[in-house]
Design a protein around this nucleic acid. Structure first.
Lengths: 247, 247
DNA sequence: AGCTTTTTTTGATCTGTGTCAATTAGTGAT
DNA sequence: ATCACTAATTGACACAGATCAAAAAAAGCT
């Protein structure tokens, strides 16, 4: 039950917000692995804890062969693909506790490129080495299946809302989703770091960046949020919720 | 390798378009199961082949506990959920060869309601009974993981296009997707049965049904498609492809 | 610091698509 | 067949949001 985990980093400057192992999406698998080794910790070469990733660095690339899945410990990332017209398109953001690359489990290659939006850190789980890692493959597979299922369910919800909501609703839902995910992982629910650019948000939500900007200031003016530089504070969660739900 | 499969149905009236087992999404699993029983066929109570489902009938319901996954043999289905304002929303269509309910593997309950759009037939795979079905659970799990991964990859592509394309592009992409899927499953690539209503298409694509109607007739007038009653014939696939890709 | 470059904001149009309304076609029942 | 009811088409109009353009603010760089 007690795992060798989350030792303080070498440099004592603690990164802004770091997720605890219990709250991390990788935890089910870490648990399985640790049970295997029963107390002795996870063998080297399978799980690397807390790799630092500098801002702007590419964590993994589209079509690159699948090797590992990552869990965000601190910081944030964006995932992008390119459509036929070679224009970039943001398909998701990863916050502390989120898993990156899970779908590679099935497709053999990563299906998007992931880049750090700020100085971040991740845990890296080597998939190739997994089968040798003692302990039943079954348990690991079960955990993976559950993770993939989660992913599918979440994707459907996101898609559904994006498609039928207008710009204001999309933004409200987006902000709430950031807050909710932050909350689930045991981090601050009100004060969010908007590490991504307005263009990234616009691309993700299928809007023009001007629209994103306009609506954010509209929210700001009606006291729904407070927004200075890249820190967003949720002032009236109820109002946002009503907005995003209204048909 | 040769499986007891796809015997002609009791009634000799062959349904319009039926997918062959080799082309079916369930095939990987059927193969695993059949290997287990090595020639003797799949034991009763695990896989039910070719259940007929009448038009309009509900195959499974939202929030109902997960029991089985289905593969469409013939006909077609639509999946729907409801948003907070209790309005129906179509989240997908299932054509011959498609799998229905896979995500239940992870979530324990179906996350949408599925209804037959026409007289159809499915194969039903009982999940509860699987573990006892001889043969390694591992192989089955691997197949499931692959299936889920496919689902995720496809969902992302669909979402991406829906979000950033305009109405014309969405319709073009939708038609092409129907044709492509039909082709993959070994069925007719040109002549498609549009078993769903314009409202269903509109809901799925996030458009008004008037818009769907208008654009379909526009396509018809420019000789991209031929459209009589509920049969759609692709006349100029290239043009549709160019349309759906143009930024 | 000062400079350049990028990002964000704000304003002014223009257009695609939703909405409302009316007609036509299709479907199913008796 | 005829009727009733639903689905699909077509038109007129309004408005959300894209696009174009320019100013303001932030971020990098030397």
């Amino acid at each position: 039950m007690s795992r060798t985990c989350c030792l303080p980093s070498a440099e004592q400057r603690t990164p802004p917000q770091e997720v605890a192992c219990n709250d991390c999406g990788l935890d089910p698998i870490c648990q399985v692995l640790d049970y295997a080794e029963s107390g002795s910790g996870i063998p080297d070469g399978i799980l690397i804890r807390r790799m630092p990733i500098p801002r702007g660095e590419m964590l993994l690339a589209y079509n690159q062969p699948f090797r590992a899945i990552y869990a965000v410990k601190s910081g944030s990332f964006k995932a992008m693909t390119w459509d036929l017209s070679s224009s970039e398109r943001v398909v998701g953001f990863f916050l502390p506790g989120d898993l990156i690359g899970t779908e590679g489990l099935a497709v053999e290659c990563y299906s998007y490129t992931v880049r750090a939006l700020e100085a971040s850190s991740v845990c890296r789980l080597e998939i190739d080495a997994l089968p040798q890692a003692g302990r039943s493959r079954e348990a690991i597979q079960d955990a993976l299946i559950a993770m993939l299922g989660q992913e599918i369910a979440m994707n459907r919800m996101v898609t559904t809302s994006l498609i039928q909501q207008n710009a204001e609703q999309r933004l409200a839902a987006f902000i709430l989703s950031l807050a909710r995910r932050s909350g689930i992982r045991g981090l601050d629910r009100q004060e969010l770091g908007l590490s991504m650019s307005r263009s990234d948000i616009a691309s993700y939500l299928g809007l023009a960046r001007e629209t994103v900007s306009r609506i954010l200031t509209r929210f700001h003016n009606s006291k729904l949020i407070e927004l200075r530089k890249h820190v967003l504070r949720v002032l009236d969660r109820g109002a946002l919720e009503r907005l995003s739900a209204s048909s």
